[in-house]
Design a protein around this nucleic acid. Sequence first.
DNA 1: GCATTATACGGAGGATGCCTCCGTTTATCA
DNA 2: TGATAAACGGAGGCATCCTCCGTATAATGC
Lengths: 190, 190
Amino acid sequence: MNSTRRKPRSDAQRNRNRLIEAAKEVLGQGGPGASLEAVARSAGVGIGTLYRHFPTREALFQAVYRHEVEQLINLASELEQTGDGADAVRAWLHAVVGLVATKRGLLGALAVVATDDSKALFAELSARMKAALGQLLARAVAEGAMRGDVTAEDLLSAVYALCYGRAPDPEWEAQVLRLLDIFVDGLHAR
Amino acid sequence: MNSTRRKPRSDAQRNRNRLIEAAKEVLGQGGPGASLEAVARSAGVGIGTLYRHFPTREALFQAVYRHEVEQLINLASELEQTGDGADAVRAWLHAVVGLVATKRGLLGALAVVATDDSKALFAELSARMKAALGQLLARAVAEGAMRGDVTAEDLLSAVYALCYGRAPDPEWEAQVLRLLDIFVDGLHAR
DNA sequence: GCATTATACGGAGGATGCCTCCGTTTATCA
DNA sequence: TGATAAACGGAGGCATCCTCCGTATAATGC
């Protein structure tokens, strides 16, 4: 039994990233049924390469989704360094709305397939989002800038409700952000 | 201007029904991406015939959905004749859960496309469901069997929340029905 | 550096699905 | 029963799916 793992080849790593980037674009645009060959083309990669990295359509969806959420979580880490805890909370929630705005089709796709695998991923990433927001929130509360009786879970639920309660027209993102700001105003300690 | 409409040919009518029946099966199984040629095959009909009756995938989804909901509404009419108003309400809500159980993929499909057309259909059918349940509910209240401070809309919202708050595993329908029964018990006047 | 080789790449190809078009069939009506 | 509007069905052109395998190359040991 030989456990010496070679380092993954650099071209493999590069192509994987390109594919995720291209998929983010193409699937976000075209919805769950979009062409995977278009994704490969847009990534400048053969179709065989796409299938080697992501054996199923769902695997690709998952990778894109995880990538997006991890960017959000990184953003939260950065925001922890900024001056104002309340502003950090607001900025982060704006970013969440931005994600929903561009990835609506993608989220729909994941909701439709709903395998055990996707459900597990969903649960994991939800927990991590909640934790990230929890950090930001705790700081804002500690600074005395926000009321302490609202949990990260409450807040995320509210954002989702705002996002999905409205039909996606051109005004969508602006309207949601406006409502969200009003909501966040209400969170401030007085 | 000539308004003499010929009667639709009987074979057209028959094939249309067969297609809806087949689509109910195939799309319910295979989800929104299922093959329309499979639907046509399963209906024992040429692919051209399918496309003449339903020019787009969405048109077919809509027809199936309308058909299902109209069956529910017919069921409500029948239940109005039965002896016990409270039982009628319960039976009808069970039927709603049954619809969601078998047509989950279909509903997802409609949610993903979300054209103006589908939204209008959705609104129309929601209103008719509400009206149908309202009738049943009114009778149960008039009989003194149920409390009068709950609207049909409340009730439908609650059922949907029960349905979609739980992941669809094998136990799903039984669990939802159990919770629904508890809820309906709570509706009874005491 | 250079040879070796595990690893990854790319795209041809067969199967299937999408949708259109049009020649053939048939239900209806007089 | 004949005329004809209406409906049928499937061939065909194109796109996509996914697999398979010959070719290319990054990593490693010398």
